[in-house]
């Protein structure tokens, strides 16, 4: 019989588990662990939510003045390269 994972071992595998990269055997052991360990269940669930809120984060809209300066610098560079 495979020994139960410790919480530390569970946490080490958590990222792969959440990214769905854990292989099936490891996955089954992780799922068994969270079904029996309330703390790891909460950590797993809240880490999943952490990843989710960041995926929905807006990119900083680039301020117009920053973009104009970028484009001006590029035009200057392009003009220099063309000559």
């Amino acid at each position: 019989m495979t020994p139960l994972l410790t919480c530390k071992q569970f946490l080490e595998e958590l990222s792969d588990y959440l990214d769905e990269n854990a292989d099936p055997e490891v996955r089954a052991r992780l799922e068994k662990h969270i079904s029996e360990c309330p703390n790891c269940f909460v950590i797993c669930d809240t880490t999943k939510k952490t990843i989710r809120v960041y995926k929905g984060m807006d990119p900083y809209p680039i301020p117009n003045d920053v973009e104009s300066r970028l484009m001006a610098a590029l035009e200057k560079k392009m003009a220099a390269k063309a000559h």
Binding site: L11, E12, L14, S15, L18, I43, T46, T47, T50, I51, V53, Y54
Partner: peptide, 13 residues
Amino acid sequence: LLRARLQLRDKLT
């Protein structure tokens, strides 16, 4: 990545 995620999870709690 794992450490970042766990630290952020902790901070956002």
